[in-house]
């Protein structure tokens, strides 16, 4: 196993990170170049050069108003509509997933009783859940938030359950012998011990959340980024359509970065303790 050098020169690490960043940028620019060259070599109505897409996006979404950070209101409104669905869905889903996961793992009887039901609902593809929830809740934001919430909660719940079940019994015995209360046992032992698994689940869950958001906005909405893409497609505003797709990709990247950042901060102990010699 790798033994992490605790005194790895922080300056050298800094350089390495800078190198990584440069590589990422280079790859991104390279991918853009490939697209550009392809679009110019094989001109097509539907695959315009990326430069044209970006120029069009710039015209639409960038203003001269520094007070709004040069961002046009239409862009913010579009994002706000999507986030109004995504954020509550994610939060409700994450909170209920964690609570239910802990409960089902700690109360064995409940866990055995409801695991198959949960597995079954998880196996229903999120895209098939959308029509189901459209019957129940119509096509409004409530439906979107519910589908996102459930699509987040189910996989997360399974991961949390797994994590809580695998908490080292010695740690639980320590908590018992020293008579810590149920609150400390939960927040001080069970949840931290299950945190690595929880984050793994959260990572998957956020990706699913975005997929469901886009699908639900493509299915029935009057605003939001997904709707923008669909509308542009219907109207053959090809440049707008591709710009919307890029924005969705950017949101995905952003979400992923937020989860990674939280993970790095909260799970520093885990990363380091597992990379130290065992």
């Amino acid at each position: 196993m790798i033994v992490r050098q605790p005194a790895e020169d922080s300056r050298r690490r800094g350089w390495r990170q800078l190198g990584d960043l440069a590589l990422r940028l280079a790859v991104l620019i390279g991918a853009g170049l490939v697209w550009e060259l392809y679009a110019r070599a094989f001109p097509s109505l539907f695959i315009p050069p990326i430069s044209a897409i970006l120029a069009n996006a710039w015209d639409q979404w960038v203003t001269g108003d520094w007070r709004a950070l040069f961002i046009a209101p239409v862009f913010l409104e579009m994002l706000a509509a999507s986030f109004r669905r995504l954020v509550p869905g994610l939060i409700y889903g994450a909170v209920s997933g964690i609570i239910l996961g802990v409960a089902l793992a700690r109360v064995r009887f409940l866990g055995e009783m409801f695991s198959p039901l949960i597995q079954f609902f998880r196996a229903i593809p999120s895209s098939a859940k959308i029509p189901m929830f459209m019957v129940l809740l119509g096509i409004g934001d409530t439906m979107k938030i519910w589908v996102i919430g459930i699509s987040v909660a189910l996989p997360l719940l399974m991961n949390v359950m797994d994590g809580v079940r695998n908490v080292d019994p010695t740690l639980l015995a320590v908590a018992k012998v020293y008579r810590v209360g149920p609150w400390t046992r939960l927040w001080g032992v069970i949840l931290p011990a299950a945190a690595p698994q929880t984050f793994a689940g959260l990572r998957i869950a956020t990706m699913i959340a975005l997929i469901v958001l886009v699908l639900s906005e493509l299915t029935g909405a009057a605003d939001g980024v997904g709707y923008y893409v669909l509308y542009a497609q219907r109207m053959f505003y090809v440049l707008d359509m591709w710009a919307g797709v890029l924005v969705l990709g950017f949101i995905g990247y952003l979400l992923n970065a937020v989860v990674s950042l939280a993970e790095v901060r909260i799970l520093r102990w885990h990363r380091q303790s597992t990379s130290t010699a065992r």
Binding site: L218, V229, V245, G252, N256
Partner: peptide, 15 residues
């Protein structure tokens, strides 16, 4: 990886 594949449905439909 983080780019939702379903975002590509409209352009691919068009093409």
């Amino acid at each position: 990886r983080p780019v939702p594949p379903v975002a590509l449905i409209p352009p691919v439909l068009l093409i």
